[in-house]
Each structure stands twice: as structure tokens, then as C-alpha cells.
Amino acid sequence: MEINNIAGVGDEISFKSGVKGIVEKIYQNSVMVSVTENTTDLEFEGDKTVIGHKNYEII
């Protein structure tokens, strides 16, 4: 199993195959992200979402 590096505040991450964002807050098992790019049909209320550490990649 690949261990994902945990993103820091201000890091840019990608997730869900087409969504990018900037980390705003770090939690024990996830990060809060301000969405900056979204090429999917997904909608994020207030352009923010929470992503588990295993579900994103630091770019």
C-alpha cells in the first residue's frame, strides 16, 4: 500500500480526476480544500470541500 504524504497548508493538490485546490486546513484524517479548478460535473458548495489524505495527490 502506498503511503501518501500529507499536504500542508498552501499546498496544491488534485483529486477526483479533474479537481484541483489549495489546502486551507489540516485535520487528522483529511484536509479542507479551496477548489481552484474543476473540470468535472461535481459541484462544491462555497468552492470548498474536505478530502481524506488517501484520496488526493500533492502537485
Score class of each variant (00 low, 15 high):
47 D>S: 14
23 V>F: 01
5 N>F: 09
49 T>F: 01
44 F>D: 11
41 D>C: 06
5 N>M: 06
27 Y>Q: 08
36 T>L: 02
45 E>H: 09
11 D>G: 11
51 I>V: 15
12 E>A: 08
36 T>Q: 04
46 G>V: 12
3 I>N: 15
46 G>T: 14
53 H>T: 11
47 D>C: 07
12 E>G: 07
5 N>A: 10
5 N>S: 11
54 K>Q: 14
46 G>D: 15
8 G>E: 15
56 Y>H: 12
53 H>Y: 06
25 K>E: 15
11 D>F: 06
18 G>V: 07
52 G>K: 00
23 V>A: 00
23 V>E: 04
8 G>S: 11
13 I>M: 03
54 K>R: 08
51 I>K: 00
1 M>D: 14
24 E>N: 09
6 I>V: 14
59 I>V: 15
42 L>G: 05
44 F>R: 01
42 L>R: 02
28 Q>E: 15
42 L>E: 14
51 I>D: 10
17 S>R: 02
26 I>G: 02
24 E>M: 08
10 G>W: 01
57 E>K: 04
50 V>C: 02
12 E>Q: 15
36 T>C: 06
19 V>R: 00
50 V>I: 10
19 V>C: 03
15 F>A: 04
30 S>I: 04
49 T>L: 01
22 I>V: 15
1 M>R: 05
48 K>A: 09
39 T>W: 00
25 K>R: 07
2 E>D: 13
15 F>H: 09
36 T>N: 02
10 G>S: 12
9 V>S: 14
20 K>Y: 09
2 E>S: 12
45 E>G: 12
52 G>Q: 09
35 V>S: 07
8 G>Y: 12
16 K>S: 12
52 G>N: 09
47 D>W: 06
35 V>G: 05
42 L>D: 13
47 D>F: 08
27 Y>N: 13
13 I>V: 13
15 F>N: 04
13 I>L: 02
3 I>K: 04
9 V>P: 05
30 S>A: 04
31 V>P: 00
24 E>D: 14
34 S>R: 03
1 M>Y: 13
7 A>H: 07
45 E>C: 11
28 Q>Y: 08
8 G>W: 03
37 E>Y: 12
50 V>M: 01
27 Y>D: 15
40 T>C: 04
25 K>P: 07
34 S>C: 10
19 V>W: 02
21 G>F: 03
54 K>T: 13
52 G>H: 07
29 N>Q: 08
29 N>D: 11
2 E>N: 11
45 E>T: 13
33 V>A: 00
43 E>Y: 11
19 V>T: 13
47 D>N: 15
39 T>N: 02
56 Y>R: 05
25 K>M: 02
27 Y>C: 08
38 N>F: 03
33 V>H: 00
35 V>M: 01
38 N>I: 06
41 D>W: 07
12 E>N: 14
47 D>H: 14
48 K>V: 15
59 I>G: 09
8 G>L: 05
32 M>V: 14
48 K>M: 14
38 N>R: 04
31 V>M: 03
27 Y>L: 06
28 Q>I: 11
56 Y>E: 12
56 Y>T: 13
40 T>H: 04
8 G>A: 08
49 T>R: 03
5 N>G: 13
13 I>F: 06
1 M>W: 12
43 E>C: 07
18 G>P: 07
3 I>E: 13
42 L>P: 05
21 G>H: 05
34 S>W: 02
40 T>N: 03
36 T>Y: 01
11 D>W: 02
47 D>Q: 09
11 D>L: 05
